[in-house]
Amino acid sequence: MIWTILIGLVAGLLARAIKPGNDAMGWIMTIVLGIAGAFVGGFIASAIGVNSDGGFIGLAFSVIGAIILLFIYELIISKTSA
């Protein structure tokens, strides 16, 4: 459980650092973003036939999934504030 939270934090922080823009969210949302990104990244990896069980490949797909979720989050926030 703690390992999942730490990996989620790392994946969320990396995704927020890579994706340009102002994503105002706290630590908890960053962890949730990373954990959810791991699920999305795992789905993408299995869809293209890549084994992403841990290691660098797993982290890379987690970050890719988190970046996708950040774009979706940004679309939702921009529509509700407009």
Rank of each mutant, 00 (worst) to 15 (best):
G41T: 00
I76H: 05
I44H: 07
S81T: 05
A47D: 04
M25L: 10
F71T: 13
G65A: 06
I28K: 08
F39H: 09
G54T: 05
A66V: 03
L59H: 00
G49C: 10
I35S: 00
V63S: 02
A24K: 15
D23L: 12
T30F: 02
I64K: 01
R16V: 11
I67W: 05
M1Y: 10
L69C: 00
A11D: 08
L13P: 02
G12P: 11
G8R: 07
P20I: 15
L75S: 07
G12D: 02
L14R: 03
S46G: 10
A17C: 07
M25P: 03
S52D: 09
F56G: 14
S62Y: 05
G55V: 11
S46V: 13
I64Y: 07
T4N: 12
V63K: 00
P20N: 12
L6E: 09
L59V: 11
N51P: 06
I5K: 01
V10W: 04
M25S: 05
N22C: 08
F43M: 06
M1C: 14
V10F: 07
A82D: 06
G12L: 12
M29V: 13
M25A: 10
F43P: 14
G55I: 15
I76P: 03
A45L: 08
I2G: 13
W3R: 15
V63F: 00
L33E: 00
S81H: 10
E74L: 13
F71S: 09
A15L: 03
E74G: 12
P20M: 14
I28L: 15
A38R: 05
A11P: 14
R16I: 13
N22V: 14
I28G: 03
F61N: 00
I67E: 01
T80L: 06
G55F: 08
R16Y: 08
A45Q: 05
M1I: 15
A82T: 12
Y73I: 15
S52A: 06
I31V: 11
A47G: 14
G12N: 02
F61M: 02
A11W: 02
T80C: 13
N22K: 15
I5W: 15
G49T: 14
F61A: 02
I7M: 06
I72S: 07
F43W: 13
T30C: 00
V40G: 02
I44Y: 11
A66L: 04
S46R: 14
T80D: 07
I31M: 00
G26M: 15
F71E: 04
I7P: 05
A60E: 07
I67H: 01
V63E: 01
S62G: 04
I68E: 07
G21D: 09
V40Q: 04
I7Q: 05
M1Q: 15
F43T: 09
A17H: 14
I2H: 13
G58K: 00
W27V: 05
E74F: 06
G26N: 15
I48C: 10
L69I: 03
G41W: 02
I7H: 03
Y73T: 06
G55D: 12
G42S: 05
I72F: 08
I18T: 09
E74Y: 14
